[in-house]
Design a protein around this nucleic acid. Structure first.
Length: 252
DNA sequence: AATGGCGCCAACCGCATGTCC
DNA sequence: GGGACATGCGGTTGGCGCCAT
């Protein structure tokens, strides 16, 4: 038995939304909120599937959307984020409050790609086009970017974990489960050799504390120190990352 | 004025992932 | 643990509007 479609397509309307449909959807959501998208069209009196309603709300109707064209500064930031994150549009969009992943994806496909081509940069790899001599270096860079991105995500997870740790009781091994030691070691090794030798020692010392102790029970000053070294290491690495991206473009 | 080409973007589709039972 | 379903995500498409001829 195959997977069922998200909705029964018979009798459902497709294509552009009318003002009346928009009004019905907005009115329903503002009054009732969203419990289950599948039930929204039925309860709102719309001949649409839940998926279509969700998309319409997220990409066009929700009140916190920022209207208008993306600025050049926003474009630059998108390019930087794309270099780090690839085609992870929802992740990229999360850096732009009021902008949708669809909007950013469309903007990328219609404008930024063209702009990068004109600059002689491959929008897929962010490498100078036809410059094979940079290939090896760029491969190394890509691996490094990937490591840092992964570490950056892990850092966010860890920060929220530490925040939550103040409020709940946790078993002793929870932090070491939360932090993937192998990933941390790999990241610090990469950063200490490439970016921040001066703070790598401090980081290595701290990592012993962070992966073995129970933060929920740790004194406040120790939590602060974890926070501090994470902040110093990552701001240093990210700054260097931005500089590298700048130089990479400058090669062209 | 008619029409063909092209760019833009809203919307759709299919797959992946998360959640619930 | 696994199946069913809901939601999220990214690639793609279709249609509208603008512009050149």
């Amino acid at each position: 038995m195959g997977r069922q479609p998200c909705c029964d397509r018979v009798g459902l309307k497709r294509g552009p939304w009318t003002i009346e449909e928009d009004h019905k959807l907005v009115h329903f959501i503002l009054n009732n909120g969203i419990q289950c998208w599948r039930t929204v069209p039925k309860l709102a009196g719309l001949q649409r599937c839940g998926k279509s309603c969700r998309l319409r709300w997220i990409n066009y109707l929700r009140p916190d959307l920022k209207r208008g064209a993306l600025s050049e500064a926003e474009e630059d930031q998108i390019i930087e984020l794309h270099a780090r994150l690839g085609n992870r549009w929802s992740k990229i969009a999360s850096y732009f409050p009021g902008r949708t992943d669809n909007e950013i994806k469309n903007h990328w496909n219609t404008r930024i790609k063209k702009r990068l081509h004109l600059m002689g940069i491959d929008p897929l790899t962010h490498q100078p086009i036809d410059k094979e001599k940079y290939q090896h270096e760029s491969d190394d860079k890509t691996e490094l970017l990937s490591t840092i991105t992964e570490t950056y995500d892990k850092r966010n997870e860890t920060e929220s974990f530490i925040e939550n740790a103040n409020d709940i009781s946790l078993p002793n091994n929870m932090l070491s489960e939360n932090i993937n030691e192998e990933l941390w070691n790999k990241s610090f090794k990469t950063m200490s050799t490439c970016y921040s030798p001066s703070i790598s020692l401090e980081a290595e010392e701290s990592i012993n504390f962070s992966t073995t102790s129970n933060v929920a029970a740790a004194p406040a000053e120790e939590e602060d120190s974890v926070q501090q070294w994470m902040d110093s290491i990552f701001s240093c690495a990210i700054n260097q990352l931005e500089e590298d991206l700048f130089l990479l473009r400058k090669y062209n």
